[in-house]
């Protein structure tokens, strides 16, 4: 797989990262280096091998259904650049 400039621009846009036009060739090249490195893994035959998701044999931790959190409106909003009447206030977004 090879990443061209327009793909690099698209990835940047999806990630909401502003990349100048002139920086795109270098970015695309960097992506290709990374992907090339990872692609070496394709050489390993993993036919019939279960993907390993954890190095220790752990079971997904569960929680009982009870309200144990919340009621901290001020704390939740404390980092917001703008908050009004208990809401986060953000630049208008309308479909």
């Amino acid at each position: 797989m090879s990443i061209d400039q327009s793909t690099a621009a698209k990835v940047a846009k999806l990630a909401r990262i502003k990349v100048d036009e002139e920086a795109l060739p270098a970015l695309a090249a960097e992506f290709n280096t990374i992907l090339g490195f990872i692609e070496q893994l394709n050489e390993v035959d993993v036919e019939g091998v279960e993907p390993m998701v954890s190095v220790t044999p752990m079971r997904l931790k569960r929680r009982a259904d009870g309200v144990t959190d919340g009621n901290q409106q001020a704390k939740v909003l404390s980092n917001a650049p703008d908050a009004r009447e208990g809401f986060f206030a953000v630049p208008k977004v309308v479909e």
């Binding site: 929680r63 309200v67 144990t68 919340g70 939740v76 909003l77 208990g86 809401f87």
Partner: peptide, 23 residues
Amino acid sequence: SQAKLFSGASTAFGAEPNSNVSF
């Protein structure tokens, strides 16, 4: 359910804004 899928905050409808919110 009483609480959310991955947190212990309440699912109750119509609460004060941002009051049923965990970190």
